[in-house]
Design a protein around this nucleic acid. Structure first.
Length: 841
RNA sequence: GAGUGAUUAGCUCAGCUGGUUAGAGCGCCACGUUGACAUCGUGGAGGUCGUAGGUUCGAGUCCUAUAUUGCUCACCA
């Protein structure tokens, strides 16, 4: 039998292993309609955090719900190799062990990385299990699997042949620590303290100079021109002349280019084509030389002169400024705060760097998405819909995607070189002397294929046929640019279909103060610690029902605690029911001859179930949770169970208790799989071996009744209690029933049995509501304190006056919908009747 | 600079296509251990829904402006 207290550790122990062993997580029953979600693959870099717990809990609620609704539910698990993130961590670990990762052999290094992957994958599996996620492990994939790698090569080659992938020299975002290129999305802009250094660039053969302001004086070694606006009257005449580049004392031309903004600064810009994207464009327009003056690790190279060769870029800035000052070139230093790009993974300042990289030509792919989003039958539907704008905006402004990374951990680019020859193909080219590109692809290049590569694409097979497009994708809004957008254009391009019909977007987890959870702030919370303290069920319910769709969530442990209390409440209600229906058999079970309170709770149950289903179908998990919470706590525990106590021997009461409890635990099971299973197994009879393969409860028309009478009685009970408390009636009092209404439930709930005999007190009061009226006599020295009636009368008078005024407004009665006006008229009548009774009492 | 959210009770949040007297949890106050639960029960206090206009018979909800704050994107060398 159940303990008096819910023990989450005992309840959750062993259940997951049992479900997994019995094969309940497996998909593939082709007699059913398919429903498929693929998990956003977590990085194999570490532990899952609260954000993962939130994201996966939502998916598990959905998949369990659909499974119980009779779908062949596939939730496909997997992980992401997470190129740069993993490589950075593996390198760090190797360094800690005294090894230099960069001097290792590539194959040797990869062995270490795979060992790391295995270790972390196993941690993640344990965490998934603890969370209770019903993932179909028979279909688990990893982004570096052979099948997925083949899909990646196929996509690369295909896009190359279509001219949508090309290799070119461009300014890209360079991470000098990881020593790799980055995409725009991997760059995070932060405000930093900096300065404008105003410098003199002397005009050749003259004492005159142009005043050039720059935030990066160390890049002057790469300057190959100075630009002024061709319409700028101040400098127009200088176009075509030369200026002297400081320190190096080289001649560089003055060019006229629109890029120079007359309004900004001095109107003169130094042009460094190899180290600034705008300057690169200017350089192209004027055929300027591209001087790369830095090494890949962020140190200066020989072009900067002997003094600066090998110096770190930041040390070089200081040294250059000092030299310029000594040479009288530095006019002044103006302190400013500006936005500077940092690497998402290593947090170092990103260097705009001229480099030969592979790119995806985005425009045609993005346009296809924009076009498809106009078709309501084939578009990706966002929930909430406002997030579609984020995707569309990105599609409108996106430009070519740099996909090559100078890393080892990832899919090696399927391109081979032999002298000037380039070969791009799925397989290695035949013949001697071919050398494969050393670089790997951006992690997101492979994740973009996840919805179909995991199902076996490019081989056409029954998995693709059956589960693609996926029904849903669940992720946070921060991932839309990185992932959702790329899945969408790749899906459209390669399968001709959207990758998923619905894209459910949630927010970010923040700490109690609203700050992002991060390692540097030390405000992170480990979901495993929360589960240890309150159980997976409490954490899951809390995360999935706390906020409305798309909103951020401020994590508050007290709320997890109160969710635990809610589960304890459900636990104890179940305990009461199970104690009372211990020997109820399936044959005895009957819902014939329902009492009015039975009809009442069954109707409330119906409402709760249909609301819950309605909300789950709209992915409004918070509303679904609230509807179950209110039903369980208010209707079932506070009211029905109290009423049932007075007829607990009745087989109809027992059957009703059974029916309600059985429905409730099934309805809440997707949120709380463990505790619902525990209660399910203790039911005297049940349909299945596990709640997770039983049916989700449905609305049943035959058990929908008019509940007004019981609602009225409960309202009377509330008024009676209020009166007793406010007037300090205490336990000793005497009552008289004043009307012929039946008082069975009221008498029981208020424990009025035996209150019709004994001493009448000196004070008295009539509690009246609708057809119910009871006079209460009790002892009180100061009977003048009884003002509850006055209070109620004045409430009624106010309300009646308000309503009369409203109903006398012809604009209202003629323009408002008639059912609403009718309701007002009825309500007015009721209030007037009640007031009349109170006055005559 | 552009886009997009938020602003409702002390705190954290709900509030669907506009409908009467705006809800929940936690916290607070009073009372209460009757055999599911004190991790509980009963009752209560507490909000002019950021501000100013407008549309409407009727606005937390729609429109305009504005303030504060968050996020995304783009940015000035």
């Amino acid at each position: 039998m159940l303990e008096t207290k819910y023990d989450h550790k005992r309840v959750e122990k062993g259940k997951y292993e049992n479900w997994k062993e019995k094969g309940y997580f497996k998909s593939g029953d082709t007699t059913k309609k398919p429903f498929c979600i693929v998990i956003p693959p977590p990085n194999v870099t570490g532990k899952l955090h609260l954000g993962h717990a939130w994201d996966t809990s939502i998916q598990d609620v959905l998949i369990r719900y659909k499974r119980m609704c009779g779908y062949d539910a596939l939730w496909l698990p997997g992980m992401d190799h997470a190129g740069i993130a993993t490589q950075a961590k593996v390198d760090r670990k190797l360094r800690e062990e005294g090894m230099d990762p960069r001097s290792m052999d590539r194959e040797e290094w990869l062995k270490k990385a795979w060992a790391w992957k295995d270790e972390y994958a196993s941690n993640i599996h344990d965490q998934w299990a603890t969370l209770g996620l019903s993932l179909d492990y028979t279909k688990e994939r990893f982004t570096l699997d052979e099948g997925l790698s083949e899909a990646v090569r196929k996509v690369f080659v295909h896009l190359y042949e279509e001219g949508l992938i090309y290799r070119g020299e461009r300014i890209i975002n360079w991470d000098p620590e990881a020593m790799t290129a980055l995409s725009n999305e991997e760059v995070i802009y932060k405000d930093v303290e900096g300065a404008f250094y105003h410098l003199k660039y002397f005009i050749e053969g003259s004492d005159e100079y142009l005043e050039v302001a720059t935030t990066r004086p160390e890049t002057l070694f790469g300057d190959t021109a100075v630009a002024v606006n061709p319409n700028d009257e101040r400098y127009k005449h200088l176009i075509g002349k030369n200026v002297i580049l400081p320190i190096l004392n080289e001649k560089i031309p003055v060019v006229g280019d629109e890029h120079a903004d007359m309004e900004f600064g001095t109107g003169v810009v130094k042009i460094t084509p190899a180290h600034d994207p705008n300057d690169f464009e200017v350089g192209n327009r004027h055929n300027l030389e591209r001087k790369i003056i830095m090494n890949p690790n962020g140190t200066m190279n020989a072009l900067c002169g002997e003094k600066y060769d090998g110096m770190d870029r930041f040390a070089c800035r200081e040294a250059v400024v000092k030299d310029l000052e000594e040479q009288g070139i530095l006019i002044r230093i103006e302190k400013i705060t500006h936005n500077v790009g940092h690497s998402e993974r290593t947090d170092v300042m990103v260097e705009p760097y001229l480099s030969k990289q592979w790119f995806v030509r985005m425009r045609p792919l993005a346009d296809a998405v924009l076009e498809n989003q106009k078709n309501k039958d084939t578009k990706v539907n966002f929930w909430p819909s406002r997030f579609e704008k984020i995707m569309n905006h990105w599609m409108e402004i996106t430009y070519d995607w740099c996909i090559s990374r100078q890393l080892w951990w990832g899919h090696r680019i399927p391109a081979w070189y032999r002298g000037e020859e380039v070969y791009v193909g799925v397989e290695e080219p035949k013949g001697e002397g071919w050398i494969q590109d050393e670089d790997v692809l951006d992690t997101w290049f492979s994740s973009a294929l996840w919805p179909f590569s995991t199902l076996g694409w490019p081989e056409g097979n029954e998995l693709i046929e059956r589960y693609y497009p996926n029904n849903c994708l669940v992720t946070g809004y921060d991932i839309i640019p990185f992932w959702v957008n790329r899945m969408t254009f790749q899906g459209l391009h390669f399968t001709g279909k959207r990758p998923f019909e619905d894209c459910i977007i949630h927010g970010l987890i923040r700490d109690k103060e609203g700050r992002k959870m991060s390692k540097s702030l030390g405000n992170g919370v480990d979901p495993m610690d929360v589960i240890e303290a309150y159980g997976a069920d409490a954490l899951r319910y809390y995360l999935t029902t706390e906020v409305s769709a798309g909103m951020d969530l401020k994590y508050d442990e007290d709320k997890v605690k109160s969710t635990w209390n809610f589960i304890n409440k459900l636990w104890n209600a179940s305990r009461f029911v199970l104690l009372n229906i211990e020997n109820l058999s399936e044959e005895e079970f009957t819902l014939d001859g329902l009492k009015e309170e039975d009809e009442w709770i069954l109707s409330k149950l119906n409402k709760a179930i249909s609301d819950t289903r309605k909300y789950l179908d709209k992915y409004e998990f918070n509303n679904a949770g609230a509807s179950l919470y209110n039903f369980i706590w208010n209707d079932f525990c506070d009211n029905y169970i109290e009423m049932a106590k007075f007829s607990a021997d009745d087989v109809v009461t027992k059957s009703t208790l059974y029916h309600v409890l059985s429905s409730v635990i099934r309805a809440i099971s997707p949120f709380m799989p463990y505790v619902s299973e525990e209660i399910y197994t203790m039911m005297p009879f049940k349909k299945c071996d596990s709640i997770m393969i039983d049916e989700y409860p449905t609305y049943s028309k035959e058990y929908d009744f008019d509940t007004k009478d019981v609602d009225d009685m409960l309202e009377f009970v509330r008024l009676f209690r209020t009166f007793k408390l406010e007037n300090g009636v205490g336990k000793e009092f005497y009552i008289e029933y004043n009307s012929k209404a039946h008082y069975r439930i009221i008498t029981n709930l208020l424990k009025l049995d035996g209150k019709t005999e004994g001493q009448k007190g000196n004070a008295s009061y009539d509690v009246i509501y609708k057809e119910y009226s009871i006079s209460v006599f009790f002892n009180k020295d100061d009977s003048s304190s009884i003002d509850a009636a006055k209070k109620r009368i004045s409430e009624l008078e106010d309300s009646i006056a308000r309503r009369k005024k409203l109903l006398s407004n012809e604009n209202y009665t003629s323009k408002a919908p008639q059912d609403i006006v009718l309701k007002d008229r009825q309500k007015l009548q009721e209030e007037e009747a009640e007031l009349e009774k109170l006055r005559t009492a």
